Simulated assay, not measured.
Amino acid sequence: MTLDFRADGAPLPLDLQHLIVAGWTGRDADAIAHHIEELAALGVPAPSQTPLYYRVSAPLLTTAPVIEAVGEASSGEVEPLIVEVDGKRYLGLASDHTDRALEAHSVAMSKQVCAKPCATELWPWDEVADRLEEIELESWIEEDGAWVPYQSGTIAAIRPLADLIEGSRISELSKDGPVAMLCGTFGAKGGVRPAAKFRMEMRDPKTGRSITHEYETRTLPEVA
């Protein structure tokens, strides 16, 4: 399945071959502990090590404005997205949408069962490489008909992206074709919780440009 990205205003269609979700990537040990405690409240077991690199199906990455999930326990997380193809690297914006009920049993499986929404626009790596840690990310969820701030932070709160690139072997995997990696997130204001609508933004404070994406989650009936 081809993803119709754009970079520098030009179409960049990609047939993604590999998708990675990097987890537990916080740079601050206290922040990692907080996120682990936050998810532990939902019954999620602590990771075996940090960071972890979950391999999920490439077709899960989608630019669609609507995704579907079984039950009402899934939620999004704003994350920087790295895309590598033909020796070129790009920075984008994505949501690691995750089934929180399943996460209590298997984090790896909870990543696999949900689509990973992303914005269509990508920034060439060389255009932001000198200030990656200044890049700002923010998300909102819709509650009671109003948009509520959900997450905010800069890439400086995440482990250096160069370390994640090395640890994930993304460059080696790109020999098979285009590869993408979601790079981790920040704690949620008010705690992790589901919402039918999720909005996210990535901003470059130096240039003032931004990437945004909004999506809706349709709930499928949970039957047994």
Rank of each mutant, 00 (worst) to 15 (best):
P124G: 07
Q49N: 03
P160M: 01
A104C: 06
M1I: 08
S110I: 09
P47E: 00
P45Q: 07
T25D: 11
G92C: 08
I155S: 11
C183V: 10
R169Q: 05
P124I: 10
V113N: 01
L137S: 00
K116D: 05
A46G: 06
W125I: 10
Y150D: 15
I165A: 14
A188S: 12
L52S: 08
L42Y: 06
A101L: 11
G9R: 02
A129Y: 06
A129M: 04
H213M: 11
L42T: 05
H35S: 13
W125V: 08
V70K: 07
E37C: 02
E143Y: 11
D28H: 14
L61C: 06
I211R: 00
C118N: 13
V179Q: 07
A94C: 14
S152T: 09
H97K: 01
H213K: 09
L182T: 15
W125M: 07
T217A: 04
V85G: 00
A180L: 09
S174C: 07
W140G: 00
P47R: 02
D163P: 07
F198M: 02
L164C: 08
M202D: 02
E216G: 00
G145W: 13
P45K: 04
G26A: 15
T219N: 05
E216Q: 08
S95K: 05
A69L: 00
P51Q: 04
L93G: 04
L91P: 05
D8M: 04
G191P: 09
G9E: 02
Y90T: 05
R100F: 13
D144A: 15
M1K: 06
A94N: 09
L132D: 01
Q112T: 02
V70D: 02
A46L: 03
D144R: 14
V107A: 08
E133N: 09
E136A: 11
G208H: 05
E84D: 05
V148L: 12
P65N: 10
V113Q: 03
L39W: 02
G187A: 14
I211F: 00
T25L: 12
E222V: 04
